[in-house]
Amino acid sequence: MSVSYENSKRVFEGIKAAGIKSVSALPETWLVHLLQRAEDDPDLELIEVAKEEEAIGIAAGAYFAGEPHLLLMQNHGFLAAINGIVSLAQLYHIPLCMLIAFRGHWGEPYPWHTRGGIITEEVLRALGIPFEYARAPENVAKQIKEAYTFSQSSLSPVALLLTRDLMED
């Protein structure tokens, strides 16, 4: 199994087509090609954080500034960012468009990813965060644009889960 170069490209093109001008991220294996493209793109501001909760603050700053922003993280990073999501984004009605690598689920060979993978959807539901699954490469650009649009209209965090079907070859 390897990370899909072609589909990472599709996701990146979807981010650009959605009008996103800046991205905050913490590197993770499934996001490696995506982040490489983001780093190489002079028109995209990429801010890499030390821990995902920082990215919630950065996203709030970008929203106040009026710049279309997107967050890239692994689901364990999402779990690490929950207080920021609840007590900054949700409390102050600040939109977040989160693309989350959905590790630790169907087909997961690594034991350390499994607990986080098993509980991710239930945590999203408990937090009242709307989410969708990105599986088919031909749909992902549309899904990213829709996720961004919905986050802005609802002033809420929104998650698009990047699945194994999409991210691995």
């Binding site: 603050g57 700053g61 500034a65």
Partner: peptide, 10 residues
């Protein structure tokens, strides 16, 4: 300070 960074960069 993370909000500050987001504001400052944009």
């Amino acid at each position: 300070s993370s909000i500050g960074l987001g504001l400052a960069k944009h």
